[in-house]
Design a protein around this nucleic acid. Structure first.
Lengths: 206, 206, 206, 206
DNA sequence: GAGTAAACGAGACGGTACGTCGAGTCTTTTC
DNA sequence: GAAAAGACTCGACGTACCGTCTCGTTTACTC
């Protein structure tokens, strides 16, 4: 258009203020009690500005969690069990003491309801964290410590799922001690898969 | 003292109507979109009557889920793996096709927020379903098929947790096929713990 | 007092407790904030018992006000103006400092809405208080101090109405001083009605 | 600072709809049975919008009454008694046949309870109507027909109070005929106060 | 530089649901 | 066989947020 002028322009200051306000409110009142109204007020911003850039408070929370990686490198020591135990302990710490533990279960209702949100959550939060564990297992497989045909996603889901399920549903205590037990259980199960004579499952027989 | 008697009378009809309305609404609109107002209206009852007997919609949903046992006998065939696979398949069916799959994730936010509600949920829903699986494993232990010192709760949490976590968080597909894999993984891990079999598999760790 | 010839048994203890509770609550929270529920609770009685004997809280309040006459004898001194001023001062005291002042305006909405209640109010409260003033004026008429054809009800309504209207509507101050002015105004108006050949009426009131 | 303006905007359409709905409901069901909920529904407006601009239904009713002046000019004919009688007849008509008669007594409970509301009522309703009568008396005073030191507010309160009290409390009939009697009574009382006329008595004439 | 339209703050809007309260009625249990 | 206790249905209360929608007011981009 020849006579046109004027363009869009997502104001950086507002953006930042909104994300900061969201982070503060998540920490202060939790995901459930956080409201879009409160975020806008805290950020000194109109509600419409919040809605213009994020479609829901789940989207906002995902953005905030995704910006704080809280996922240091996973230093590969070559000690498979040790690496895994340390990683699981970090997951436990995250879910019992970090923001994530408060927010993710509270947000799960929104994720189940809204597939697009769930996909965003997986892309920004779940998969990045998951990939570091996958790497450990892949390296072990490459070294021959674990069977090649191992179902890695299933192991991961069982591992993190056990912790998540305890926190949300079963209420069993989630302590650092469970990390070792869990890793042992799953690692032994994984190794049992090594030999080809799978029909006889009953003994490890390596 | 002049007169001096008098008693209560919790109306059975209203109770029943409320529970039925709740069940219908859970199925029709889901837990998140169900409202106390809607329940009262559907039941032909005042909101106050609902609140008199249930403190929240979570309490109501728990009562409704708890009344429908949906837990047939667990027919012990003596085939440990077969029994477990069948049980896991039933869990999968429940969570992917039954009411529970819709409701429990949606309700988890309320459970995490309200410990009393979580306890009620565990007593009425989680533990009863759990006990039938525990029984299978206990019998196997008694038969000597599994080590005596097995951490049964951890196995259960890993097992159901894997399914739950896939549904809510990781989004990996939840199919009947995964039942066998999951049982194999955990069962092999469990057997590896058998003291007599122990030769060189892993480090002391404790 | 309801109940009656020895058939049903209007439990005297409950009756008394209800009236006492009503009196206390009228004094403590006022007519508007008093509830049937509160009365029953305070009296240690079921709500149905209250409703059995009184149809509304207005009926109860009327009963309580009617039982406390708060209307001493009206000592006729023969001094018309003095008697009237003293009486008006008592009305003012009652309406500005007694229970009546709080209750009657608050109750007036119920009276206007419910003619039966209004009639009860007049019979038990208004007319008895009115009759003592009527007596003063009647005696003065008999003595020839006031014209025979005087419209006594109109005078009374103007007199008490002025006070009531100030309290409820106009907000003009209601003080003991207005008693004299009001009596003078109305008494002069009354006397003017006597003969047509009236020239001079009175001297400086003060 | 990037963005940076913003203002309020009380929607005229909603305002009008609310006031109209209030007026209709006052006429249809009366003040006591009128509810904020009903007003909002009738006006096609959210309850919050009603509460945003009016703090209570009393405030709304006052606004509605205040907008309908229902107070034509008071045509000064120079005939003091005639002007007054006509004015009193108009007051009677208003209170027995107009909206005011239904509403004001019903509202009086709220006025007594809430001084701020009472003040608003006086400013918007009572004083404007009062001033037209005051004017008549002031002109008469200026013409010398009435004594200069006349207590005009007292006369007005006695006059309107007599009518109001009859309607609400004493239940005596309120007819157009009483207008003349009331004016005569008060006017004679007022004239008696004229300094020049004073030659003799008040106090027991015998 | 000027013109223009986007994005902005503010917050009012129509709604929905909240959880509480009291009204007046009804039912059961007890004395 | 009445009275006490209290559960019942009903409906309004006043509040909180929702997500949308004007309002004027800045900018910042394009010409």
């Amino acid at each position: 258009v020849p006579g046109g002028a004027g363009q869009r322009r997502p104001n950086a200051r507002s953006h930042k203020a909104i994300l900061e306000a969201t982070g503060q409110l998540l920490a202060e009142v939790g995901y459930g009690a956080m409201t879009m109204e409160g975020i806008a007020a805290r950020a000194g911003v109109g509600k419409a500005t919040v809605y213009r850039w994020w479609s829901s408070k789940a989207a906002l929370a995902i953005d905030v969690l995704g910006e704080n990686p809280s996922e240091p490198a996973d230093e590969d020591t070559g000690d498979l069990r040790g690496d895994l135990v340390r990683t699981v302990e970090r997951v436990i710490a995250l879910l019992t003491r970090g923001l994530e533990g408060e927010i993710i279960p509270a947000m799960s209702a929104d994720l189940v309801r809204d597939p697009a949100m769930a996909e965003l959550f997986r892309t920004r939060i779940a998969r990045p964290r998951r990939s570091s564990v996958t790497a450990i297992l892949d390296r072990a497989t490459a070294r021959g410590e674990l069977p090649k045909k191992l179902d890695v996603p299933l192991m991961l889901d069982a591992c993190v799922g056990a912790i998540f399920y305890r926190l949300v549903i079963s209420g069993e205590p989630v302590t650092d001690e469970m990390a070792g037990d869990l890793v042992d259980l799953l690692l032994d199960g994984a190794r049992a898969r090594t030999p080809k004579r799978r029909t006889a499952r009953r003994r490890p027989a390596r």
